[in-house]
């Protein structure tokens, strides 16, 4: 069964249509890269999966978005629970103005977990998962702002993992990072794939090539092509995809 599926999705900001008739199916435990020129609707699309666009006034969606077979835009769906299942990592590291420990514990606390031991356990495993433990284990009580940008971003990933989602959405997670931090995050994505279904927006073609199983190319709100990453990068069916990937337009 498909983990995520979108059927004839149209999305509007007020009167302007940002997504046109998008149909995509994503298999569990894969990494899907969303690529395309700036403003083509990648972020908008990604944010449909955890209903983040609900926060923006005057937006409208039609069509269906299914996760594990359930329409997440159906009536009576609890958005908070949905977001627990669908974690998100943002473009810029955005830790809370709290301690490192509390940042990771936050998702647990707001979801009604108060057992101290359980929280400590989860915080530790999550930070270990993002290979940050050795760097921060002695300063868990320090402010998260004291970490470097790359460390902050990994902390944000740990924060998302702590509530044990099954899907991880990442919107240009390495665009604010230096090459070494970027490499670390990419490695991490590769490892996380065994447990999570990952959708990642990126402007970096090499990155898409390195980490993803399938790639979707968007252009002006339309899905031009979605296929195995290898196929898209070596043998795309549509010329516009080819042009974009080889950098003939931007």
């Amino acid at each position: 069964m498909n983990k995520i599926e979108s059927k004839d999705v149209n999305f509007f900001y007020g009167a302007s249509q940002a997504l046109k008739n998008i149909n995509i199916a994503i298999k569990p435990n894969t990494v899907t890269a969303l690529i395309g020129p700036s403003g083509c609707g990648k972020s908008t699309y990604l944010r449909l999966f955890n209903r983040m666009n609900d926060l923006i006034d005057n937006t409208k969606i039609n069509g269906q978005v299914l996760i594990d077979g359930d329409d997440i835009y159906a009536k009576g769906v609890n958005v908070d629970s949905l977001r627990k299942k669908v974690g998100m990592v943002f473009q810029k590291p955005n830790p809370f103005p709290k301690t490192i420990f509390e940042n990771v514990a936050y998702g647990l606390r707001v979801n009604g977990i108060s057992d101290k031991k359980l929280i400590e356990e989860r915080v530790e495993t999550s930070i270990k998962q993002v290979v940050l433990w050795d760097e921060v284990k002695d300063k868990l009580k320090k402010s998260a702002f004291e970490l470097s940008g790359g460390q902050q971003q990994r902390l944000c990933i740990a924060r998302a993992l702590a509530i044990q989602p099954s899907i991880l959405l990442m919107d240009e997670p390495t665009s604010a990072l230096d090459p070494i931090s970027t490499a670390k995050v990419e490695e991490l994505i590769y490892e996380l794939k065994t447990k999570y279904t990952i959708v990642i927006v990126t402007h970096n073609m090499q990155q898409a090539g390195r980490v993803s199983d399938t790639t979707a190319f968007f252009y002006m709100g339309e899905l031009i092509e979605h296929d195995n990453t290898k196929t898209i990068f070596t043998n795309p069916k549509i010329e516009r995809t080819q042009n974009y990937i080889t950098g003939r337009f931007g």
Partner: peptide, 12 residues
């Protein structure tokens, strides 16, 4: 983890 529905209700 507490019962999903109960939690959601109490948050609401």
């Amino acid at each position: 983890m507490p019962d999903e529905n109960k939690l959601a209700k109490s948050k609401k």
